[in-house]
């Protein structure tokens, strides 16, 4: 069968696994976006910049405070989430009564400002960040670096935890109720604005966490997020805006689709995601897992 399509099985398995690893990043980033959109109705275009801030955060922590990767994994997302919450309080909260479009424009503008600031101070080329788990295992069909295996496991774990927290926990049920009927939930004595701020911070923290995980693999540079964000938006749209499970499944799925494209026609690998998006939107305008809003 493999001879028929002209690709050695080794190459195919290798690319599938790599696709899964890239999918892990898509899944984590789109998860944060989905949470924010689902609960706040804000299309958070700052997400890419916040992912970049996570990666830069770990670099800054290492170079100025000597914090190792494992510490940064915890601290950097917290700091970036705090910055995110400040942005939500000061800017975003003024836009909730307006159309989606205003939130999108504002977050896009904030992203440009943040990226511009980082470029001003750290240059366009970026910074090196050492791999915390060097080495790897030879699987026969490919060499798998240990760190990449860790990324897949870690992101799967995070995705499942987030899904459980939102769909199965009491806090999650408050959140979901607050989206449907904010007035009623407020009447039960729950501080809805604070909950929204914390939710935004949580989504942003997820982006920053993905950024910290990305630092040892990708160049830590001010524009790293803007490259990724378009693909991640496509992932969220394909999965269904606001659907947590949808974004995770689509994230991993599209990583694999992209990996396969790299085997057969690498030049199209940056386009294939958008092709899928166009097809899905034609057939199911609400996305694979979403309900039409």
């Amino acid at each position: 069968m493999f001879e028929l399509i002209g690709v050695a099985p080794q190459a195919l398995f290798g690319q599938l696994l790599l696709g899964l690893i890239n999918g892990a990043f898509y899944a984590m980033l789109s998860l944060g976006l989905a949470v924010i959109f689902g609960l706040l109705n804000i299309i958070n275009f700052t997400h890419g910049a916040q992912y970049m801030m996570g990666a830069f955060g770990s670099w800054l922590l290492l170079n100025y405070l000597g914090t190792p990767f494992w510490g940064a994994l915890l601290i950097a997302p917290l700091i970036v989430a705090a910055v995110g919450m400040a942005i939500e309080r000061v800017l975003l909260s003024r836009l909730y009564h307006l159309d989606h479009l205003y939130g999108l424009l504002l977050t896009y503008g904030v992203a440009l400002v943040i990226e511009g600031l980082f470029r001003r101070f750290y240059g366009a080329s970026g910074m090196p960040y050492a791999n915390p788990i060097p080495g790897g295992a030879n699987l026969g069909f490919m060499f798998l670096p240990y760190y990449r295996a860790f990324v897949v496991v870690a992101s799967l774990a995070v995705c499942i935890l987030v899904w459980l927290a939102i769909e199965r926990s009491k806090l999650g049920s408050y959140l979901r109720a607050a989206i449907e009927k904010p007035d009623l939930v407020q009447a039960f004595g729950i501080n809805v604005p604070r909950m929204i701020t914390l939710t935004y911070g949580f989504g942003v923290g997820l982006a920053a966490l993905a950024g910290v995980l990305a630092a040892p693999i990708y160049q830590v540079s001010p524009i790293m997020g803007s490259h990724l964000i378009n693909v991640v938006f496509a992932v969220v749209v394909i999965g269904g805006l606001g659907s947590v499970a949808g974004s995770v499944v689509t994230g991993f799925g599209l990583g694999v689709v992209e990996g396969l494209t790299k085997v057969f026609y690498p030049e199209a690998s940056s386009t294939v995601v958008f092709l899928v998006m166009a097809v899905v939107l034609t057939i199911r305008p609400g996305g694979l897992f979403g309900a039409t809003r």
Partner: peptide
């Protein structure tokens, strides 16, 4: 040879093919 689009962040696929 393998080509990649501009501003591609992941090169593991190209590298694996080159390695093989």
């Amino acid at each position: 040879k393998s080509r990649h689009p501009l501003n591609n962040s992941d090169f593991s696929s190209n590298l694996l093919q080159a390695q093989a």
